[in-house]
């Protein structure tokens, strides 16, 4: 047997006391890397597979420590509009093309303005973090671990190893469905619940808004259902994109075709992710989307009900 390299994965967040990603109180593990590029994504920092540098201008004091620390010269701090007797406005610019994500600047930033999003974890290291939450899984109907991201299905080996550390704990995967079918088959026996996203019905629209088509997604949904997996269908509803009758009808038809789907869950668009684009130096969205009012969200539920989808929850 040849020595295998220790399994590791880049994780960009561990959220404890998660209340809505599966039953009970959960620990959400956010993996980095996603094959989709959904325009409305509220976790855009999760898309790239490698670590991303986050910068929060509100916290920056322009001390210049990062400028000194970066071997690639990615940071510059300059004063603009300086007139005699004033320093002008300080500007901290980050050249993202020079940033390699090594995080030397983060190590010296003591104002919390710089943060490296995405940290390499071994299974041991992650298990230690999860250990903290074990006492809470007994609460109510029982909680557990939710693997999300990004696309966790790109990390099945790591997830499997992690699952083996916590026998008996409820395991949940939240997925876009866009991953090799073999991966789903491999991990299926160890997963108690799939939170399966269904975003858009029209293939061309799916390609336009998400960067890939939805054929593989639908194929995997079918596969999971055939194999007897427990599934919750999650519906990100983005006003002007997929709040149309055609998509709602398609959802209803999926729910009829796959009766073992526990329920459908509406995930209304929210703008929490907006500030992130700037903070992570990511390109702006193609479109702006209105945040739905609670009445609109209720209206979606009513429409889905009218189409025969009876068990609908709102996240």
């Amino acid at each position: 047997m040849s020595p295998t390299k220790e399994l590791s994965a880049i994780i960009f967040d561990i959220q404890r006391c998660s209340l809505s990603d599966g039953p009970g109180i959960r620990t959400d593990i956010f993996f980095k890397g996603c094959p989709l590029r959904c325009d409305w994504c509220h976790n855009p920092e999760s898309q790239a597979a490698s670590a991303v540098l986050a910068y929060n201008p509100q916290l920056c004091r322009h001390c210049g420590a990062c400028v000194q620390a970066c071997p690639n010269g990615a940071h510059t701090i300059s004063a603009t509009n300086a007139t005699s007797g004033t320093v002008g406005v300080m500007l901290h610019a980050i050249d993202r093309t020079k940033c390699t994500g090594i995080g030397e600047c983060v190590k010296v930033c003591c104002y919390g303005a710089l943060e490296l999003v995405g940290e390499l974890y071994t299974v041991d290291e992650l298990a230690k973090e999860i250990q903290i939450d074990l006492p809470y899984y007994a609460i109510g109907e029982g909680g557990g671990i939710t693997y999300t991201g990004g696309e966790p299905m790109l990390q099945v080996e790591f997830i499997e190893a992690c699952i083996d550390r916590f026998p008996g704990v409820h395991m949940c995967v939240e997925t876009s469905g866009y991953a090799p079918s073999e991966s789903f088959l491999k991990i299926l026996p160890k997963i108690d619940l799939f939170l399966f996203d269904y975003k858009l019905t029209d293939v061309a629209k799916h390609e336009y808004y998400c960067g890939v088509g939805n054929e593989l997604i639908l194929q995997n949904l079918h596969l999971l259902h055939e194999q007897g997996a427990d599934i919750v269908l999650r519906l990100p509803i983005i006003p002007t994109v997929n709040d149309d009758e055609g998509h709602f009808r398609a959802v209803a038809s999926l729910m009829r075709r796959y009766p073992r789907i526990q329920y459908a869950e509406i995930m209304p668009f929210h703008s929490l992710g907006e500030g992130k684009l700037e903070r992570f130096g990511l390109s702006p969205r193609m479109h702006q989307y209105p945040v739905p009012t609670p009445q609109e969200v209720e209206g979606w539920r009513t429409r889905l009900k009218a189409l025969g989808v009876l068990d609908i929850r709102i996240s």
Binding site: L19, N56, L272, S315
Partner: peptide
């Protein structure tokens, strides 16, 4: 915050 809990004062201003 979108389904998980966090300390309000630890969040960024926009959030």
């Amino acid at each position: 915050v979108g389904g998980f809990s966090a300390r309000f004062v630890n969040l960024k201003k926009d959030v």
